[in-house]
Nucleic acid binder design. Structure first.
Lengths: 110, 110
DNA sequence: ATATTTACTACGACAATCGTAGTACGACAG
DNA sequence: CTGTCGTACTACGATTGTCGTAGTAAATAT
């Protein structure tokens, strides 16, 4: 049961994370679990990769962070919310993916 | 007319190059042109990327280099030939690609 | 004669990922 | 009440493929 390394997915962690923020804010640990679930354990993102992606994407204006005020539902966390600019970026990246996929597949033997 | 950067394809230049060596040896300039043609100008590999990929792949044992002896058909060139190990690697990478593609597409909205 | 194409090499910068390590809070078992 | 496990991070330096810029030189076209 082979697993994918983040290095192979390099450059696409952004859209993976942004996808999971499209509908509601979320935070590191939860996103990590969702990636694992959605990929059926094929892709398990490294903590360092994930958190440094958050920092980078916040600096780029794709996401915004806030801290949960009422700690009713657990402990203190840093949540991230996608920005309008982040949505644009996400869509642009999806198009780039489609193009990239088409190109690479010309060099794959089946 | 958007173009793909090598950084996006990162990690897959190897299979692109190896694909073009599957049937016969070739060299930098020719491979560069073939990538461009096959991708219909969507992907134009940088010279530095290409030549450093050659060095890396030779060090990894995926390809072997030799110089053309008779210069009838042009000038002196360094040709590269895929090794059996390189073929194995190519096939493994193709499988990895299939897996990677499946994973990423779960995070793409169409 | 000169410009363009061909065929490279050198070298340092960059940026995303990775490895390792460590902190600290909360829940739950024994 | 104590220790372990799961949660939720942060720090920091190493690694590696790609990129930018530059330069060389032979062959071909104008």
């Amino acid at each position: 049961m082979p697993e994918i390394s983040s290095d192979v997915i390099r450059g696409y962690n952004d859209i993976i994370i942004l996808y999971l923020l499209l509908n509601e804010p979320s935070y590191g640990y939860e996103i990590s679990k969702q990636i694992r679930q959605l990929s059926q354990d094929k892709y398990i993102i490294k903590e360092t990769t994930l958190y440094s992606a958050f920092t980078r994407m916040e600096n780029n204006g794709f996401i915004e962070s806030f801290v949960n005020e009422d700690l009713a539902g657990g402990k203190k966390r840093t949540y991230y919310r996608i920005t309008p600019f982040g949505r644009e970026y996400y869509l642009a990246k999806c198009e780039e993916w489609t193009l990239t996929k088409e190109v690479i597949e010309k060099f794959i033997v089946y």
